[in-house]
């Protein structure tokens, strides 16, 4: 899962980035509305954590622009203004959730997962594909009830594929999920992770679609 965090306080931004990354989320952080617009123009995110009071404007403006161009990426507002009226205004402007500062990091991570899950059209917190079950909140995967140990990257690749079983994910899309901007992307890493995943969860679970990418086999 890849999340954009827009927050102007450097320490809080750092905290959210590191904290969400601990939960297996790839995080990109920006501090201004302008940088947020640039990030949204160039990358796709599964969710956005958006601060309201930014140095060059209000996060609500960015949110309005997104919804204006039918960008349905889930947005979780983050703000120190936690009066009811502010919450209502934020939600009515198109936000999916609202967290007041100071917040609990685990709760923020859970809410991010929740808005991303709803956006992906899933109601159950567990992702299921055949005998494989993935729990994004505990970063655990089981195959036929047996726990499987995965690295963070392998988990992210599997999560990207399992979000929509049966749908093809391109290599580029998977890479986007794996790496933030600052990270160096190696050309064959996705293949390596898929190879390792197949060793751990079963040879037939992930299907290669020639020229397009990969998908989870929906039925066994």
């Amino acid at each position: 899962m890849r999340v954009l965090v827009v927050e102007d306080d450097p320490i809080l931004l750092d905290g959210i980035k590191v904290g969400l990354a601990l939960g297996g989320v790839t995080v990109d952080g920006v501090a201004t509305c302008a940088d947020a617009r640039a990030a949204l123009a160039t990358s796709r995110f599964d969710a956005i954590v958006l601060d309201l009071m930014l140095p060059d404007g209000s996060g609500l403006d960015v949110l309005g622009e997104m919804r204006g161009r039918a960008d349905a990426t889930p947005v979780l507002l983050l703000t120190a203004l936690d009066e009811t009226a502010d919450r209502i205004l934020g939600l009515d402007s198109g936000a999916d959730d609202y967290v007041g500062k100071p917040f609990d990091l685990d709760e923020l991570a859970a809410r991010v997962r929740a808005v991303a899950r709803r956006h992906a059209g899933r109601a159950a917190p567990l992702m299921l594909a055949g005998a494989i079950a993935l729990d994004p909140s505990t970063l655990s995967v089981t195959v036929a009830g047996e726990p499987v140990s995965l690295s963070r990257r392998e988990f992210s690749v599997l999560a990207a594929l399992m979000e929509r079983p049966g749908m093809v994910r391109s290599k580029g899309e998977i890479e986007d999920r794996l790496y933030g901007w600052q990270e160096e992307v190696e050309s064959n890493t996705v293949e390596v992770h898929i190879h390792n995943l197949r060793n751990k969860i079963g040879r037939t679970a992930i299907e290669t679609v020639r020229g397009l990418g990969y998908r989870m086999r929906s039925a066994t």
Binding site: D9, I11, L12, D14, G15, I16, V18, G19, L22, M53, A80, L81, G100, K101, P102, F103, D104, L105, D106, L108
Partner: peptide, 19 residues
């Protein structure tokens, strides 16, 4: 409002340090 943001930062970083 101005105090909440650094407090949120502190809390987040503290939770990270623990986890």
């Amino acid at each position: 409002h101005e105090l909440r943001t650094p407090l949120a930062g502190l809390k987040t970083q503290t939770q990270i340090a623990r986890a």
